[in-house]
Write a protein that binds this DNA or RNA. Structure first.
Length: 388
RNA sequence: CCAGGGGUACCCAAGCGGCCAAAGGGGGCAGACUGUAAAUCUGCUGGCUCACGCCUUCGGGGGUUCGAAUCCCUCCCCCUGGACCA
C-alpha cells in the first residue's frame, strides 16, 4: 500500500511502528515524537557480513516496511567501516565496500520487495560516504566516548557478536561509540535494530542529553533522546544448546541469544535467495518438538514470518489420510492445533516451507541470473571472518 | 623489548624420535528407530583407491637423523605479566 501523500494519523502510526517488536525505548518518547508532527527519520545499520538471512531480509526489513508505510523516512546504513573493524569479509575494505553497494544493497532491496515494499522509498547510506571529509563524525564519536565508560564499552561488545571478556584488539572498542555516533550524525529520531543491539542504543539514550557537538534536538531546539525500537531475533533451526530450556527468565534471555539464527551455521539459517529444495531440506531437518511452543523454531518462524500481518493465513496441504488440507487464519489457532497434536510437525514444516518459497520468490528471481547472481557467486568465495 | 605459556585435522584437545593419518570429545554426514526434528543405537568423517597401497598434513622456512607432530635453528602469530615512556 503506497502513501503518495503523507497522512498524519498518529494512532495508525503508533500501531504500525509498535507492532511485532520486542521493545520500544521508550513508548512515552515514541508517543511524544509521533505527536510532535515533525518529519521522522529512521535508521537501521547492517554489517556487511555475508549472505542475507531471513532475520535480516524479512524481520528487519519487515519493520522497515511498517515505518515506510507510516510515512517515516527510512535509512538503511551499510556499515562498511564497522564490518572492517569487526574482521568480517576478510578484512579488505575495498572488497567490503563493493559488497555493501552491490550484493548487500541489492539483497535488502529484493527483500523489501518480498514484503511488498518499494525499494525506491529507502535511502541507502554507505559508512564510507557518511564519514568522508566529515570531522563532525569523529568529533561525535569522541563526544560519545567522553560520556560513557570503558567498562560499559567492554560490556557492549556483544553487539558485535563477540562474547563479553573475549580478547579483542583495541579498534573494536571504537565500534560501539561509532554505532552510537551514527545515530546522532544522521539526526535520526528512531534508531532501529534487533534486540541484540540494545546495549548500543541504551548508551545512545544515556549520553544523548550530554552531547555537545551533534545532539539530537526537537523543533524547539531542545536535546532529546533517540527512540530505540528492537525487533525480535529469529530462532536458529537447530536444537538449542541447552535442552530442555531452563525456566528462569534471565537464563532464557541469555540462551535465546545463543539460539538465534546464525549465518555461520548454515543449517540454522535460510537465506533470502535459497532454492526451494534447500528451503524444504533445511526445514525438514529443523528441530521441532511437538509439545513445545516456546522454543520451537518452526513455530517461531511461523509466528514472526508468516503471521506478521493482521489477516494473514496459512494453508497447509495434507493427504486425506493425514487429515486433509487445512487453513489457519491466526497464529494462535495454529499453535493450539499443533500443541493438541492435530497438526503434525512434518505437515507444519512443509506448509511453512511452501509459504516461504512463495514469499521469497522476488529475491530468488533477483539473484537467479545476471549481475546479481554474479555478486552472490563472488560473495561466496570470500571468507566470512578473518583477522587481517 | 623482556619473561613465561601457546600455535595439532571443521572445532576443542591428547601425543612429545619409529607402533601417528595422528587418542578422546564435539560437530558433520549416512543408516536404524519415530508420520518431523530431537533422544538412542550403528557406520563414515585428510585426498586418491573395492582393496593392498600411494600421496598431502601437526603455524612458516631451514637443519639433525635410516626415520620428526615429536630434537635443533630461525621467522611469524596469539595469550599472561613486566619493562620502556617517567
Amino acid at each position: 500500500m503506497a502513501f503518495g501523500v503523507l497522512v498524519y494519523r498518529p494512532m495508525d502510526w503508533w500501531s504500525l511502528i509498535n507492532r511485532n517488536l520486542d521493545e520500544v525505548l521508550t513508548e512515552e518518547d515514541l508517543r511524544t515524537l509521533l505527536e510532535s508532527g515533525e518529519p521522522l527519520r529512521h535508521y537501521i545499520g547492517f554489517e556487511i557480513s555475508g549472505k542475507i538471512h531471513l532475520g535480516q531480509g524479512l524481520v528487519c526489513m519487515g519493520k522497515v516496511k511498517d515505518l515506510v508505510d507510516a510515512g517515516v523516512q527510512c535509512m538503511i546504513f551499510l556499515a562498511d567501516w564497522h564490518t572492517w573493524v569487526n574482521d568480517k569479509l576478510g578484512g579488505d575494505r575495498e572488497r567490503i565496500r563493493k559488497v555493501a553497494l552491490g550484493y548487500f544493497k541489492e539483497g535488502l532491496a529484493a527483500s523489501f520487495r518480498c514484503l511488498g515494499g518499494d525499494p525506491a522509498k529507502l535511502k541507502f547510506v554507505l559508512g564510507t560516504d557518511l564519514y568522508h571529509h566529515n570531522d563532525e563524525y569523529w568529533l561525535t564519536v569522541l563526544d560519545v566516548a567522553k560520556n560513557t565508560s570503558l567498562a560499559r564499552i567492554q560490556r557492549s561488545i556483544t553487539i558485535m557478536g563477540r562474547k563479553e571478556g573475549e580478547s579483542i584488539d583495541f579498534a573494536k572498542l571504537f565500534y560501539p561509540a561509532m554505532q552510537v555516533a551514527d545515530i546522532f550524525i544522521q539526526g535520526v529520531q528512531i534508531a532501529h535494530a534487533g534486540i541484540d543491539q540494545r546495549k548500543a542504543h541504551v548508551i545512545a539514550r544515556d549520553c544523548a542529553l550530554q552531547l555537545k557537538h551533534r545532539p539530537l534536538t526537537n523543533k524547539k531546539g531542545e536535546k532529546i533522546k533517540p527512540v530505540a525500537i528492537h525487533h525480535p531475533l529469529l530462532l536458529g533451526l537447530g536444537k538449542p544448546p541447552v535442552w530442555p530450556v531452563p525456566a528462569e527468565k534471565e537464563k532464557k534471555q541469555e540462551l535465546f541469544a545463543s539460539m538465534k539464527m546464525s549465518k555461520s551455521i548454515a543449517s540454522s539459517a535460510i537465506f533470502i535467495h535459497d532454492a526451494p529444495d534447500e528451503i524444504r531440506a533445511k526445514l525438514k531437518k529443523a528441530f521441532c518438538p511437538p509439545d513445545d511452543a516456546a522454543f520451537n523454531p518452526v513455530l517461531d518462524w511461523t509466528k514472526k514470518l508468516l503471521f506478521r500481518d493482521e489477516g494473514s493465513s496459512l494453508r497447509i496441504e495434507r493427504t486425506a489420510q493425514n487429515g486433509g488440507t487445512v487453513a489457519f487464519a491466526a497464529y494462535a489457532e495454529l499453535e493450539k492445533s499443533f500443541l493438541e497434536g492435530k497438526l503434525h510437525p512434518m505437515d507444519l514444516k512443509t506448509g511453512v516451507a511452501e509459504r516461504l518459497i512463495e514469499i521469497l520468490a522476488p529475491a530468488r528471481e533477483a539473484f537467479a541470473s545476471g549481475e546479481r547472481a554474479a555478486m552472490l557467486a563472488e560473495l561466496e568465495t570470500i571468507p566470512t571472518e578473518s583477522r587481517q
